[in-house]
Design a protein around this nucleic acid. Structure first.
Lengths: 190, 190
DNA sequence: GTTAGCATGTAAGGAGTTACATGATTTT
DNA sequence: AAAATCATGTAACTCCTTACATGCTAAC
C-alpha cells in the first residue's frame, strides 16, 4: 500500500477540497489556479493520489456518484470527493508545519497559496524561512560571481547576473510581506 | 542498456567537457557553476550518466587513471573523461537544436549557459522561442486574474500578481538579448 | 586526532509524466 | 457530423535523489 510521502500534492488536494466537495477533473482545475505557476498536475498523479488519500481515510466519496464507478458501466459518473474529519485534521497538521521543507520553491508556493487557511504565526515563520533561504542563494551567486569573474564567459555571467536580480526582487517582496504580517501580529496582541 | 533520453544532463556534461578533460568530481563543480541556479546534480545521476555516455562512445577515459578503477584497489584513482570525436559531433548536434523543448525552463537555462558554443542563428531562435513561451504564460496568468478576480482570496491574488511581474521582467530581459543578437547578426552580414 | 573536502560508485526509492484506453456531452 | 471538452483511470517509463559504502589527503 505504498504510502506516498509527497506532502505538497496532498496539501494541494486537501487544501482545495476545504471549500467543499469536488470531483477529480474540477479539482484539478481549481488546484492548478492555485499552484499552476510552479507545478503541473497530471491525471496520472491526481487520480492515484485521490484513491490513496481515500484509503488513508482522509477523503470520502459521494455514495450516489460512486455507484457508477465500475469500469465499463457508466464511465462518465463523476466521483465527488470531500474531506472527512480525519482529513480536516490532517490538513490542519500539514498547515501547521513551518520547517525547512516549507521554504523550498515548490512547497513554498503551495503553502503560500493556502495562507488564508494558515495561522498568522506560521505564516510569518514560513515567510522568514523563505527569506533566509533566498539570502543564502544570493550569497552563493555572489560568491560565484566574485570568484570566477575572469574565467566565466559573457553568457554564464549574464545568466548569473539576471538570476541575482530575480532573487533580489523576491527578497524585497518577502520583506514587505513580513512587515505587513508583523504589523498585523502586533495589532492582534493589543 | 537503457539509453537515457535526458538531453539536458548530457548537454551539461558534454558542454562542460568541451574545454578539456575532467574527472567526475571536478566536472560536477564546473557544471554546477553553469547550471546550479536551476538544477542540482547529484553523484547518483552524474556517475551513471558518465558511464552511459562512455558506453555510447561519446566519452573516453584516461587509460592510466582507469587502471586503478577496480573496486577495492585504489578507490581514489581519478577517472578523467574527455570528448571523443563522436562526442564532439553529438554535442554539436545537440547545440544545433532549437525546438519547443529548448525553451522550457530547465533546458533553456542549460542552453543559455552554453551560448558561447552555439551558433548565432540558433541562439536567436532559442531566445525568440523562449520569448513566445513566456508571453503565453503571461496570457494564462492574466486570463486567470481577470476571470477569478472576485473568487480569489488575497494570497492567491498576491501570488499571481508577483508571478506576473517576474515573467514580465524576464520578457523584457529577453527583448534586450534578442535586439543585441539581431544587431550582431546584421553586422555579420555586411 | 578529527573534521572537512576529495573521489567514486550502487541500490532503492520517490515523484512524477506520457501514452493509452474509454466513452459521454457540448459546441461549432 | 466533426471537434473540443468533460471525465476517469492504468501501465510503463523517466529522471532524479537519498542513503549507503569506501577510503584517501589536507587542514585545524
Amino acid at each position: 500500500m505504498a504510502t506516498r510521502k509527497s506532502q505538497t500534492l496532498d496539501l494541494a488536494i486537501l487544501g482545495t477540497l476545504k471549500e467543499g466537495e469536488l470531483h477529480g477533473y474540477e479539482l484539478r482545475k481549481r488546484a492548478l489556479s492555485l499552484i499552476g505557476q510552479v507545478r503541473s498536475l497530471s491525471y496520472g498523479s491526481l487520480y492515484p493520489a485521490l484513491r490513496e488519500l481515500t484509503e488513508r481515510g482522509y477523503l470520502e466519496v459521494d455514495d450516489r456518484a460512486a455507484l457508477g464507478i465500475r469500469r465499463g458501466a457508466n464511465p462518465r459518473a463523476r466521483i465527488a470527493y470531500s474531506l472527512t474529519s480525519a482529513g480536516k485534521e490532517h490538513l490542519n497538521s500539514l498547515l501547521a508545519e513551518s520547517g525547512p521543507k516549507e521554504w523550498e520553491d515548490d512547497s513554498f508556493v503551495v503553502r503560500f497559496a493556502l495562507f488564508s487557511q494558515t495561522d498568522l504565526r506560521v505564516r510569518v515563520r514560513i515567510l522568514e524561512g523563505r527569506h533566509t533561504r533566498l539570502v543564502e542563494r544570493l550569497e552563493t551567486i555572489r560568491e560565484s560571481l566574485s570568484r570566477g569573474r575572469e574565467r566565466m564567459d559573457t553568457w554564464t555571467l549574464e545568466l548569473q547576473r539576471h538570476g541575482e536580480e530575480a532573487v533580489e526582487r523576491e527578497v524585497r517582496w518577502l520583506n514587505e510581506l513580513i512587515d505587513n504580517a508583523k504589523t498585523e501580529e502586533k495589532e492582534m496582541n493589543k
